[in-house]
Simulated scan of single mutants.
Amino acid sequence: MLAKDRDELAVYYCVDDLPGAHIPATRLNGVLERLQQGLPLSKIALNYLEKQGLIALLRHATGGSTSDKFHQDAKVEQARRKQEAEALRVAKEQERQERETARQAQMKLAQEKAKVARQALERDPKYIAKIRNQQLRARYDLDWFIEKDCFAPLMDILRRIDAGKRLSEKNVLWLSTDGEEYFSDSLRTAYHQIEAEFYNTQFNKNHDIWMAVNASSHYRKCGKANVADVLLKSVDIEAKKSPKLRSAFFTTHGGVKRDLGFKEKAIRLGEKAHGLMNKDFRPCTLIGAVYMETGNYILGQQWYEKAVERGATERAIDSELRSIFMRADSASQKAMQAHLLQVDPERYRWTRNLSAKR
């Protein structure tokens, strides 16, 4: 039987308000189909009609009413069912609304309690200090677990840095030893920025070129080589006779030129510094680094060896080499790795691990 036919059948027998009348294979639909075909209903089917309150349909099925009487009674039953169904729907909707109103009231109460608790917490000095500490650590990329013994000295350092104050020698020593893992790039940059500004101020006050050298060194370490270059260009170094000062100046300026990508100028300044203080390892380290960066590994290695002979540590040299290696592109890394492994495969085995991670 088609759906249209089932719907028409349900309307005819005044049960179109009951879902089962429209669905095939349901008990009510089966009863209607048998009645339509003039077939008798089983006792089970008759009991079903009685339980469902379909009394008019029951009488009609058992011959107890005429067609007109059936339709008259059936329509009354249907009207009553619809009224009861509507009353039930209204009652359920009212109950739903009452539950929703109660839920909203509970939620509002919970929110108000939470607000009061939050406001009380936000006035708590301990909580305020905790939040400020978290925000301060986050600014310097240290929003992770801090060892209990390290918390106090670290927070003292962060507060000083955040206020633009210089660190004490004790602070710097701690960051270089016990607190080394907390010396983040952000903190390091901020530290060098403050130091650079301090020495620059000192230079402007007394025109001590050593202050300009120190300021430039710190400017380099906080990514402001261009500021250092402008500062050093303003210095009349040729008027100074001290070989040590001139060498330190040329070495620092060479480092600045190296950072800015002027490699040849960096080498020339390094050579001038070395000519003035040929026992100082710093010019040698500068020249060695520039040669390494430009792919002249043999000369770079030779200058690094000179630096070690003059007091530079192999650890410092290796640290510089790692930095150069990590900044290099893939082709340069392969060439540098081949050279270093040929020089000392054990000492420079780290090139294999670092190139594999790239």
Results as ranks from 00 to 15, higher is better:
Glu112Ala: 06
Gln119Arg: 11
Leu109Cys: 08
Lys113Gln: 13
Lys126Tyr: 09
Ala102Lys: 15
Ala129Pro: 02
Lys113Trp: 04
Arg118Ser: 12
Arg103Leu: 03
Arg118Glu: 12
Ala129Gly: 01
Ala117Asn: 11
Ala102Asn: 13
Gln104Arg: 07
Ile128Glu: 12
Lys108Tyr: 02
Gln119Thr: 05
Ala129Trp: 00
Arg118Asp: 09
Val116Ile: 15
Gln106Ser: 09
Asp124Met: 00
Arg103Glu: 05
Lys115Phe: 13
Ala110Met: 00
Thr101Ser: 12
Pro125Gln: 05
Ala117Ile: 10
Ala105Ile: 06
Arg123Pro: 02
Ala114Val: 07
Ala129Ser: 07
Ala120Cys: 04
Gln106Met: 06
Arg118Cys: 09
Ala105Trp: 05
Gln111Ser: 11
Lys113Leu: 11
Glu122Arg: 06
Ala110His: 00
Gln104Tyr: 03
Lys115Ile: 10
Lys113Ile: 06
Ala110Ile: 00
Thr101Ala: 15
Lys115Pro: 06
Glu112Phe: 05
Gln111Asp: 12
Thr101Trp: 09
Val116Leu: 14
Gln104Met: 06
Pro125Cys: 03
Arg123Trp: 01
Ala110Arg: 00
Leu121Asn: 00
Lys108Thr: 01
Leu121Met: 05
Tyr127Thr: 05
Leu121Trp: 00
Lys130Gln: 15
Ala102Leu: 14
Gln106Pro: 02
Ala120Phe: 04
Val116Asp: 12
Ala117Asp: 15
Gln119Glu: 10
Met107Phe: 11
Ile128Met: 07
Thr101Glu: 15
Ala105Gly: 05
Ile128Ala: 08
Ala120Val: 06
Ala120Ser: 07
Glu122Ile: 00
Asp124Lys: 03
Ala105Tyr: 04
Arg123Cys: 03
Arg118Val: 10
Val116Thr: 14
Ala117Gly: 04
Gln104Val: 08
Lys130Leu: 14
Arg103Gln: 05
Ala110Glu: 05
Lys108Gln: 04
Lys126Arg: 10
Ala129Gln: 05
Lys130Ala: 15
Leu109Met: 12
Val116Gln: 15
Arg123Val: 00
Lys108Ile: 00
Met107Thr: 12
Ala114Leu: 13
Ala102Gly: 07
Pro125Ser: 03
Glu122Thr: 01
Met107Ala: 14
Gln111Tyr: 15
Gln106Asn: 08
Met107Asn: 11
Lys130Glu: 14
Asp124Ala: 01
Tyr127Phe: 07
Pro125Phe: 04
Thr101Leu: 15
Tyr127Ser: 06
Ala105His: 06
Lys108Asn: 03
Ala110Cys: 01
Ala114Arg: 12
Asp124Val: 01
Arg118Thr: 11
Glu122Leu: 02
Leu109Lys: 14
Gln104Glu: 11
Tyr127Trp: 08
Arg118Gly: 05
Ala114Met: 11
Arg103Asn: 03
Glu122Pro: 02
Ala105Asp: 04
Glu122Gln: 04
Met107Glu: 14
Arg118Pro: 06
Arg103Thr: 04
